[in-house]
Each structure stands twice: as structure tokens, then as C-alpha cells.
């Protein structure tokens, strides 16, 4: 019965949505302190290649590979972040854009390690690894009425869902605290924030690094969901796509990033004919948004109004 509902195709789309949500949050976090990073695709690539290479060549457990991928991306974030954060927003955007391209060019050219533009194949797939692990304990998906590939995709979705929830929980809690207040005060007025005693360099590096870590995590997960990666997965277009998730959904609230990633991943899947024109539509959407609603679909005012709506309904009841 469960087997009829669980369609691997839907599960796969769901897993893309979840990875894209992580990516959108990786742009959202630095933006919450006023920093635009165009290097998210690069950090994502670093996470993906690190984890893929480690697991292929050294046969280490996936979870350690994925964590290593995220950490290497985070460390790269610190290395790039500290010097470039002396720069203001626009310069940071360009520096990160340059970084992303350098990373991609290295992936293409370091053929002995990365297999060049063909990319890496045979990356251990997360769901299958878990299935094999479970089988070691005598578990069979048929025991809960599932086919093997249904189980594989279901496990992936559940793990991603868990990670997304944990990330959102982390970001929301951080936001409603002394750290979050510092980040948003820097975003609103850097000079005033500093004269209130906030060490702006520290907080900017912090949020930038968190973004790099999250992008690296998403990249590593991507590698182990897809099973193959190539440099074109981490091009400038990917960076722009991630940026659009966040900017479209709403760059001031985390719900915006979640909504943007979900909506913009779903639409091309549901409306197939749009898929070909996706980037043209993205371009138009960006132009119109900046002119009409630069903060994106969701902002604090809209959220407050929605909350108010819920409350008044509760009142009637």
C-alpha cells in the first residue's frame, strides 16, 4: 500500500528541492549581514568534489566524507572571507564570483584528480549505501512493503529533510539572538553597528563562513544523491540560479529562501515546456523584482500580516 504512494520520480524531485533549499539558505545567511556571495556554486563544488574523491579513493564512510566536504568549503570561506570582507558588498560579490570561476577552471583542468570536464562517476550513492548497511543487519525493504529503489529514494529524502529542518532551526535560533541582531544591524547600517560595539569583521566572516559551509554541505549531498558530478554542475549559472531562489522568495526572511527554492524547482518540473525558457524567465523575474519588489515575495510585513490573519481566525473560533 505504501509502495503505491511512493513514486521514485517524485521522491527525486523532492530531494532536489531539499538540496536547493540548503543552497538558498547558504546565500540567505551571508545576505542577512548584507553580503552578496556569488561564489556559492564554487563552494558547492568544493564540498561535492572533496566528499566524492574521499569516498571513492579512500573508502571512508559517507557521513565523514560529507562533513569533510562541508568543512573544507567552510575553511575556504574563512580564507577568502577574512581579507575580502574589508571590501564593501559589490567588491565582495565580484571576488566571490572570481573565486567560483577559478574553482571551476581547476576542476576542468586538474584532470589527473578530477577527470576534467567529464567529471566523476561511481560516487557512492547515499541511499544504496544505507540499504547495503541495513541489509547487513538482515533488513529487507520488502519487510516494510517497499521495493529496493523506493527505499533508496525514501531514505535520501528523509535524511535531506532532517538536515534541512536542522539547518532552518539553527538559522532561526541564531537570528533571534544576540548574534542575529548583530548580523541584521550590520546589514542595515554597518557604521552604526560598529559604533554600538559590534566587531563587524568577526560577524561578517562568521555569516560568510556559515554560508560557505552550507553550500559545501549541499554540494556533498548533491554528489552522493546523483552519483556523478562534473564541473558544469558548479558553473556561474548555478550560482545565479541559487541567488534567484533567495532573491525571488524573499531575501529578508528565511521562509523566502525556502519558498523560492521550492517554487522555482517545482515549476519547471510541473510545466515542462517552461523548462527550456527557464533562464530567460529567471532574467525577466530578476529585473522586474528589483524594480517592483526588491525584497522578494516574502518580507517581514507580509509575514506579520499572515500571522495577524491566523490570529484573527483563532479569535473567531
Amino acid at each position: 500500500m505504501l509502495a503505491d504512494i511512493i513514486n521514485p520520480y517524485f521522491l527525486q524531485i523532492l530531494s532536489f528541492i531539499l538540496i536547493n533549499i540548503l543552497l538558498a539558505i547558504s546565500v540567505y545567511v551571508p545576505l542577512s549581514s548584507g553580503q552578496l556571495s556569488l561564489g556559492s556554486a564554487g563552494f558547492m563544488g568544493v564540498g561535492a568534489y572533496t566528499s566524492a574523491l574521499l569516498t571513492i579513493h579512500f573508502d571512508i564512510p559517507l557521513i565523514i566524507g560529507i562533513l569533510a566536504g562541508a568543512c573544507v568549503a567552510g575553511i575556504l570561506g574563512i580564507i577568502v572571507g577574512i581579507p575580502s570582507l574589508r571590501l564593501s558588498g559589490v567588491y565582495l560579490a565580484i571576488a566571490t564570483l572570481g573565486l567560483g570561476e577559478v574553482i571551476r577552471v581547476i576542476f576542468v583542468n586538474w584532470e589527473s584528480l578530477t577527470k576534467g570536464s567529464i567529471g566523476l562517476t561511481g560516487i557512492p550513492q547515499m541511499g544504496r549505501e544505507i540499504l547495503n548497511f541495513a541489509k547487513g543487519f538482515g533488513f529487507d525493504p520488502a519487510m516494510i512493503g517497499l521495493k529496493s529503489n523506493q527505499f533508496v529514494y525514501l531514505v535520501i529524502v528523509l535524511i535531506l529533510l532532517l538536515l534541512v529542518i536542522a539547518t532552518i532551526w539553527f538559522v532561526v535560533r541564531q537570528q533571534n539572538s544576540r548574534v542575529g541582531r548583530s548580523l541584521s544591524s550590520i546589514q542595515m547600517d554597518e557604521k552604526a553597528a560598529e559604533s554600538m560595539g559590534i566587531n563587524i569583521t568577526y560577524y561578517k566572516v562568521l555569516s560568510f563562513t556559515q554560508g560557505a559551509f552550507l553550500a559545501g554541505l549541499a554540494g556533498a549531498l548533491f554528489a552522493h544523491v546523483m552519483g556523478y558530478i562534473s564541473p558544469s554542475d558548479f558553473s556561474y549559472h548555478r550560482a545565479v540560479e541559487i541567488l534567484i531562489f533567495t532573491v525571488f522568495g524573499g531575501s529578508e526572511v528565511i521562509l523566502g529562501a525556502v519558498f523560492g527554492a521550492t517554487f522555482l524547482t517545482l515549476v519547471p518540473e510541473v510545466l515542462r515546456f517552461i523548462s527550456d525558457y527557464r533562464y530567460i524567465i529567471y532574467g525577466i523575474v530578476l529585473i522586474i523584482l528589483m524594480a517592483v519588489r526588491p525584497q522578494g515575495i516574502f518580507d517581514i510585513h507580509l509575514l506579520n500580516r499572515l500571522k495577524g490573519l491566523k490570529r484573527s481566525k483563532g479569535g473567531v473560533r
Partner: peptide, 8 residues
């Protein structure tokens, strides 16, 4: 010229 954090 007042520098508060406007949307806070």
C-alpha cells in the same frame, strides 16, 4: 543625521 537600524 540619526542612524538607527530602520527595520528593527
Amino acid at each position: 543625521n540619526i542612524r538607527l537600524f530602520p527595520q528593527m
